[in-house]
């Protein structure tokens, strides 16, 4: 006990700050120490900043105007990435499209993540009858034909816009995540540290979100980064089917959808290739950053 008295308090608090960095600081340290992660982060920031700032410089009305004299033009100084079937500038569409697609992807991922995580944690933590009832409801939701329901909802909703599209996609996006989390939570709740927390008088919700969740976070982060890519894919697929974003809203899906024609795939690459590459690069960047965050969340894996 003498040791504690001799230690200077200010010194202690300073050392605590040094040794006990916040989670954000740990993530930052982890990203800095991983070359791929820092490159990815910079690239991702550049792409997203360009996409989100571009509306300030692009005339969106002009972008939507059809010009038949200007169709399928190859890349030139006037149109950096050429034009599409309506004579609209592909580069402008790519920027606006990247913004729309990414917003939808990230919103759906976040909503689905939060809902799925809470649902799975509650179900797995309590187990027994609670788990039984919650899982039966989840199974009922899962057997519904997702694509058909989305299409029906898209058709019957009166004022259909980006927000309602996000909500419709989220209805079905959290199911798999909830199951995944629940299965891990069931394993985790048998471990003694959960029992210890119970005997120490910690309330259940605190155990779920502050004890159990950090131990599942690597799973959640990996799953979120992967589904972020998947959700951008869903948007692309629905747009391809004609039930995606409202007409006239450019998205990466609209651009990639041009590639269903062999002539365009072969000869008019400038329409679909940039969008496809942009999706690929964004996904890789998100993945590398995600891996760095995953390592930061687990003290045993940290590089820094």
């Amino acid at each position: 006990m003498k040791n504690t008295v001799t230690i200077n308090e200010k010194d202690l608090i300073a050392r605590e700050k040094l040794n006990n960095p916040s989670f954000a600081k740990t993530i930052w340290r982890e990203i800095i120490h991983d070359k791929m992660a820092i490159i990815s982060l910079i690239l991702l920031i550049i792409i997203l900043a360009t996409a989100y700032l571009s509306p300030l410089f692009i005339d969106q009305v002009a972008l939507k105007r059809v010009n038949f004299l200007n169709t399928w033009k190859a890349p030139s100084a006037a149109n950096w990435l050429g034009t599409d079937d309506g004579g609209r500038d592909v580069f402008g569409q790519l920027m606006i499209g990247a913004r729309n697609s990414f917003t939808i992807g990230i919103a759906v991922t976040l909503i689905a993540g939060v809902v799925g995580l809470s649902y799975g944690l509650i179900s797995g933590f309590y187990g027994g009858h609670v788990d039984n009832v919650m899982m039966r409801f989840l199974e009922f939701m899962m057997v519904l034909p997702t694509t058909m329901f989305i299409i029906v909802l898209v058709t019957i909703i009166p004022n259909y816009n980006v927000v309602s599209f996000i909500l419709i996609l989220s209805i079905f996006a959290w199911l798999g995540k909830a199951r995944l989390i629940r299965s891990r939570a069931l394993q985790e709740r048998e471990l003694d540290y959960i029992n210890a927390s119970k005997t120490l008088g910690t309330p259940s919700w605190k155990i779920m979100f502050f004890e159990m969740f950090p131990n599942l976070s690597s799973l959640v982060i990996v799953n979120m980064t992967l589904t972020l890519a998947g959700n951008i894919g869903i948007e692309t697929g629905l747009t391809f089917l004609g039930y995606g974003l409202p007409a006239g809203t450019p998205s990466l899906g609209t651009l990639v959808a041009f590639a269903r024609n062999p002539d365009i795939v072969q000869n008019k690459w400038w329409v679909w290739l940039p969008a496809a590459l942009l999706i690929l690069v964004m996904m890789l960047c998100i993945n590398y950053v995600g891996q760095a965050i995953k390592r930061a969340s687990d003290a045993r894996q940290r590089l820094a």
């Binding site: 540290y193 210890a196 976070s217």
Partner: peptide, 14 residues
Amino acid sequence: QMIFQDPYSSLNGR
């Protein structure tokens, strides 16, 4: 209060 059997799983590693 309780002291647990397995000191490896009774402390939260995070």
